[in-house]
């Protein structure tokens, strides 16, 4: 693999890992505070899977660049992260958490399906392993989409409010990075425009069926280097113990 290709692949893997990490972190905040006990269990389970996925993607970054996953997670500043703003947002109410989860799960399902056929074998193997877990996440958040979208007037109103915030942010999941064309030519990573169309083809009808609308215009951030202020506070919380003693093995 030449240096350009290696750098492009590492950047994609890093962005993918960062998304999973942030979502896991936000979902885990519900542990002990969910609306029903069964969801304390379910969401903690999903958070563990996502953290597991993040670890796998960081592990592949390490193979390419030699960067230690824990150093990447606990010693990078906000400007060095490549997560999408959608997953950095605070957990909000249960509608916000579940709608974000649904939009992300649909994206991850479409992404993993394509990555399972990646010409870079470690990515193909990792994606194949994750797809099974992701299917359960997708079923879970799809069920909540319908339940809350069609439940009561209040639950529908909360879901629509969540969609109004999330929809413009969702586009950033598909924003380009340098080297994408190279990855696409090699068959290492799918074309993100095609991925976005596939995602929209699933998500827009599902939102409509759940009684949610107004998903037409969506001007949001289109560069993964641009973050919200929420990432700074998230990282301050996440990194405080690790950074209190840089010499320590935790």
């Amino acid at each position: 693999m030449n240096d350009d290709l290696r750098a492009a692949l590492a950047a994609r893997l890093l962005a993918t890992a960062d998304d999973e990490l942030m979502l896991a972190h936000r979902n885990a905040e519900w542990t002990g505070h969910a609306p029903i006990l069964e969801e304390d269990i379910a969401l903690a389970n999903i958070a563990q899977d996502e953290l597991g996925h993040a670890s796998i993607w960081y592990g592949l970054v390490e193979e390419l660049t030699g960067q230690d996953p824990d150093r990447l997670v606990f010693f990078r500043d906000a400007g060095e992260y490549r997560s999408a703003q959608m997953v950095e947002q605070p957990r909000g109410d249960w509608a916000f958490t579940m709608l974000r989860q649904y939009l992300f799960d649909a994206y991850e399902m479409a992404l993993l399906a394509r990555l399972a056929g990646s010409a870079y074998q470690p990515v193909a193997d990792a994606a194949a392993r994750m797809r099974n877990e992701e299917l359960y996440h997708y079923r879970h958040s799809s069920a909540w989409l319908r339940r809350l979208g069609l439940g009561t007037a209040e639950s529908n109103r909360r879901m629509q409010a969540a969609l109004d915030v999330l929809w413009p942010l969702a586009g950033q999941l598909f924003s380009p990075q340098p080297g994408d064309a190279l990855l696409n030519v090699e068959g290492y990573w799918p074309d993100l425009n095609e991925l976005r169309q596939a995602w929209s083809g699933v998500v827009i009808p599902a939102l409509e069926e759940a009684g949610l609308g107004e998903t037409a215009s969506a001007a949001g951030p289109d560069d993964r280097r641009v973050h919200s202020a929420h990432l700074d506070t998230l990282l301050a919380d996440m990194q405080m113990v690790a950074r209190a003693d840089e010499e320590a093995v935790w």
């Binding site: 002990g32 304390d40 670890s55 824990d70 113990v241």
Partner: peptide, 24 residues
């Protein structure tokens, strides 16, 4: 649960979420 967000390594974070989930 209050310390999940501050866990200082990926491994510790994973273990702690699993542990609190066990309690649920």
């Amino acid at each position: 649960g209050a310390w999940i967000e501050h866990a200082p390594s990926l491994r510790r974070k994973l273990i702690l979420i699993a542990k609190v989930q066990d309690e649920a």
